[in-house]
Design a binder for these strands. Sequence first.
DNA 1: ATCGTAGAATCGTTCAACAATCCTACAAGT
DNA 2: ACTTGTAGGATTGTTGAACGATTCTACGAT
Lengths: 223, 223
Amino acid sequence: MSTLAQGKADLERASTAQKVADMLRERVLDGELEPGLRLSEEAIGGALGVSRNTLREAFRLLTRDRILVHEHSRGVFVRRPTSDDVRDLYAARRAIECGALRLWNDVTEARREAVRAPVRQAVARAEKNDFSKTGTANIQFHRGIVGLAGSARLSDESDRLFAELMLAFRVAREMDAFHQTYLPWNRRIVELLNNGTVEQAVLQLDEYFDAAERDLASRLSAD
Amino acid sequence: MSTLAQGKADLERASTAQKVADMLRERVLDGELEPGLRLSEEAIGGALGVSRNTLREAFRLLTRDRILVHEHSRGVFVRRPTSDDVRDLYAARRAIECGALRLWNDVTEARREAVRAPVRQAVARAEKNDFSKTGTANIQFHRGIVGLAGSARLSDESDRLFAELMLAFRVAREMDAFHQTYLPWNRRIVELLNNGTVEQAVLQLDEYFDAAERDLASRLSAD
DNA sequence: ATCGTAGAATCGTTCAACAATCCTACAAGT
DNA sequence: ACTTGTAGGATTGTTGAACGATTCTACGAT
């Protein structure tokens, strides 16, 4: 049954615009297309071999994800988050994740494990001096927290917030070092959760956001 | 300054696709276009005097807002929320609004007033047996709660959730009566907040979501 | 140095066309 | 009666070209 559902999902993923959007999203998040860069319809469309109309549909999709910004009669640009954007992003995450973490005792064990596992793995890698996937591990931890709420819509929106935050990290040029700093924090939160002191964990998460926001915002405003 | 910013916003609001999307959104939320209805590109485009490509851009915008659903090679349809959708929507609202309400003591007085005012007005109208705007008042109350978080992104996403919920109400055919039922609840929450017992208010809000979700979901599944 | 303007480049929108896909209805077989 | 197969029509997906509208660039005037 699940394989059939998967197959159906694959089939539905046709749409040229969707594929173009996926490719562009990857390029942006990988850093090949730098924040602030303008994406010419003619240039990109020609390079990818799709028509202008189709490309514009792809642009719309990425604008929804806040990866691109659209300026009327000027074109689309790779988003370049400001310190105000960072403030807004962390305000959203604070409400969402603290609200979700509060539900810790009401959810299935599988959902709780989705929070613990990324931290456990990150700790294991750190002990072997392997800091390669430290960025994605941190994000997995927070995705797990959002997942506690049990809403696909909320998880999707959070993914968009994370993607936008990745752009901010790129502008601040502090991607890896940044995530690395906050592994101890994640670890402490998981310990508090395992001890059953959920309210304490929420407060700790709140403090994490304070610190992270200040750190990132200062690097951006200095620019 | 604010008038200049307003003027700029008006100028930027050009875009035919945007205007078409706004018109269609209104028609759907007013109930002229019923949930489940298929929107033919040719028919709608002809009636509104816009080309197919422009109309398709408008469709994309409304798909982002979850007002329409797009099925590959089949067209776009007015969304028809299921009981699973309702479950997901309330799960998202629970996390967001409970997370935001938690911040009651940390925000400006203006933000707190945006929560109190809608309830006060609704109470005043109810005493005069005026139940005309009871629906929008309830939504304004919850918009105020989300606003406590201070994130434009979160408020925008919440508006999308509210719009989707309006569609669910329409399917359940219980729009006004539904909102009316929950005015006492809102009132109690505001009282708890004014008493300084924020944690109590959060719990009360949580219960409200439980009751509202059960109520609406049962009406949908019966259909 | 500031301002204004002509020209180039690019976007916004429309139109027409064709391939790909879906829906409908009807015929054939069990 | 129920499923299966198959044509035909209708609708969507995508392309390409075209033209007015807007923005950008560079050059010259004050």
